[in-house]
Design a protein around this nucleic acid. Structure first.
Length: 149
DNA sequence: GCCAACGTTGGC
DNA sequence: GCCAACGTTGGC
């Protein structure tokens, strides 16, 4: 079973909001590489929930993929922040999927700590210039992060 | 708010 | 197909 990491701005959706909801739709991804990873996800896959663009960027918990990717409805909604005028119901290039809460860590593991781990050097999250918002995590990386949680 | 780095767009 | 310009991401 592959592991993943996905970024969310906590103002949009935080791990604690997901905990309250139990389950929600993960949408608004507008990058092809990230979208392709989402299409490769399977029900039951676990991912680290990363808080980005906030006072305390870092990994805040764990959630689970709750079903296969489907067409992202926000791309077709003119009132959505994620509206894409070039998308149509027939040809919608963007994908969303449902996710379920698993665990909120007692602390957010700060980005600086992740960057200091030799075991995570290959993780796109910590690489200079990388802005990828959805990425695979190897079993070894997963274990290394759990070990410092 | 700044700015480095990136992805996308569009003229040629 | 090249590449400059632009908009966005996201840490600091």
């Amino acid at each position: 079973m592959p592991y993943w990491l996905m970024k969310s701005e906590p103002d949009e959706l935080s791990i604690h909001e997901l905990q309250r909801l139990g389950r929600t739709r993960w949408d608004g991804v507008r990058n092809y590489q990230a979208r392709n990873f989402m299409r490769n996800m399977q029900q039951g896959d676990l991912f680290f929930f990363y808080h980005s663009s906030c006072p305390e960027p870092g990994i805040a918990g764990i959630a689970r993929i709750d079903g296969p990717a489907y067409a992202d409805p926000t791309a077709l909604d003119p009132h959505s922040h994620y509206f894409d005028a070039k998308a149509s119901a027939e040809k919608n290039p963007w994908s969303a999927l449902d996710v379920a809460f698993v665990e909120a860590f007692e602390r957010v593991i700060p980005l600086a700590e992740l960057k200091a781990q030799n075991a995570l050097l290959e993780l796109p999250l910590v690489q200079k210039g990388s802005r990828l918002s959805v990425m695979p995590v190897t079993g070894a990386q997963w274990a290394a992060i759990l070990a410092i949680r």
